[in-house]
Amino acid sequence: MSNIYAYSANDINGETVNLDRYRNQVVLIVNTASQCGFTPQYQGLQTLYQAYQVRGFVVLGFPCNQFGGQEPGTHQQIGQYCRSNYGVSFPLFEKIAVNGTNTHPLYQYLKNAAPGCFGSRAIKWNFTKFLVQRNGEVAARCGSLISPLQLCSKIERLL
């Protein structure tokens, strides 16, 4: 598959969302966790979403518990935590696997489309970010150390 529009995922409320819904938008896909040193990045993600949403930008958060068990909550707990602590209003999805035999198909695509350092396809930690252009193809992959606000110029170029 050549873009994200071929995939679907369950949102935080359990409803299936076809990613075709985000066609012609710039999308930032992030694997998240609520008990991680990078968790404050939720604030930056929300800031980006609020700043660029009207121009056709969306953040999609995919909680993952594969890195140090840092996302142990239920879907409802995760959603509540993100809303109450960081004011998150961008779409959140159910917990998924981003590595291993149970990797969500969307993440299989993302990792193949944009390998990490030295060609590694594995997600190294929480808050790895994939910036997707309006045609649904991956434009960039950024690791956890890159804060969301460091992506402003890349996002603006794609908008």
Rank of each mutant, 00 (worst) to 15 (best):
A139Q: 14
T47V: 08
F67K: 09
E137D: 12
Q35W: 02
N102W: 01
T74M: 07
N135P: 12
Q50V: 07
Q150S: 14
N31F: 04
K154A: 09
Q77W: 06
S8K: 02
R157I: 00
T39S: 14
Y107D: 06
G14N: 06
S2R: 03
G44T: 09
E137R: 15
G69K: 07
V58K: 12
N13M: 05
N13F: 13
D11T: 08
R121P: 08
S89D: 11
F57T: 07
F57W: 03
F130V: 00
M1C: 13
T39G: 12
I155V: 14
K129M: 07
P91A: 02
R134I: 09
A33M: 10
Q43P: 15
K154C: 03
G119V: 11
S89Q: 14
A6Q: 11
G44N: 07
S147W: 02
Q66T: 11
V58E: 14
Y52F: 10
V138C: 04
E71Q: 06
Q77D: 15
Q66W: 03
Q76D: 10
S2Q: 09
V98I: 12
I78T: 08
V30C: 10
E94P: 10
A122W: 02
F38H: 12
Q43W: 04
F118A: 08
Y81E: 05
Q35R: 09
T32Y: 01
F127P: 07
A114K: 03
Q77E: 15
Q35G: 05
Q133E: 13
L159C: 08
A33G: 11
W125S: 06
Y81C: 11
I78N: 00
A9G: 15
F90K: 13
I12Q: 01
N10I: 05
C82G: 10
G119D: 00
G61Y: 02
E15W: 01
A139K: 10
A140L: 15
N112H: 09
F130H: 00
S153H: 08
Q70H: 11
R55V: 11
E15F: 04
G143K: 06
F118E: 06
N126F: 02
I155H: 04
S153D: 13
